[in-house]
């Protein structure tokens, strides 16, 4: 069985894989980092989004073998080591951007990728960017609001509450 080595959340990670081992399986089963979720098998729901070399990818649609040598960031690596939430996580908390929490890791990883590309996105840009992340609970209202807030925009006037 071949071996793969990569850096996950700043730490070296090595494991035995099969050719068909998906990156998400390696993360969840081998590394036991279960924050990355699987919500579909057609690459649409986005619960599995992680960053590979700084880019958001669907870890259910990439083989572990292809992450050889890569720098992978999962939801577990986002908060500071002392547990302090990062800006996006904190905004999701402040603005109730999550309910059941299942899509949340992918949402946070996508939101972080968006803000890295576009530090002050408009509402429309955020909604467009989240095309690959499905949430069944929140109606997206508070997710979009949280991302706007995380980008430093004033969200106090968004719709009546």
């Amino acid at each position: 069985m071949p071996q793969v080595s990569m850096t996950v959340n700043g730490k070296p990670a090595t494991g035995q894989i099969e050719g068909r081992t998906l990156l998400v399986d390696f993360i969840r089963e081998t590394l036991n980092l279960t924050g990355t979720h699987v919500g579909c098998d057609t690459s649409q729901c986005g619960a599995c989004v992680v960053h590979v070399n700084g880019k958001a990818v669907k870890s259910c649609t990439m083989f572990a073998a292809e992450a050889e040598g890569a720098d992978v960031l999962t939801i577990e690596g986002v908060a500071a080591p002392d547990g302090t939430l990062d800006t996006v996580q904190q905004a999701f908390h402040e603005h109730h951007g999550l309910q059941c929490g299942f899509c949340t890791p992918g949402m946070v990883m996508s939101a972080k990728a968006l803000l890295a590309e576009n530090p002050t996105p408009t509402e429309a840009e955020i909604r467009d960017y989240l095309e690959g992340n499905i949430c069944r609970c929140t109606g997206y209202h508070n997710i979009v609001k949280a991302i706007m807030a995380a980008s430093g925009q004033d969200v106090s006037k968004i719709a009546a509450e």
Partner: peptide, 20 residues
């Protein structure tokens, strides 16, 4: 039989809601 044909609402299918 999958999200390829069952259309789930995405972020750009809805506006901000005004609720009370």
């Amino acid at each position: 039989a999958s999200y390829m044909d069952y259309a789930m609402p995405r972020a750009d299918d809805v506006p901000f809601f005004s609720i009370d």
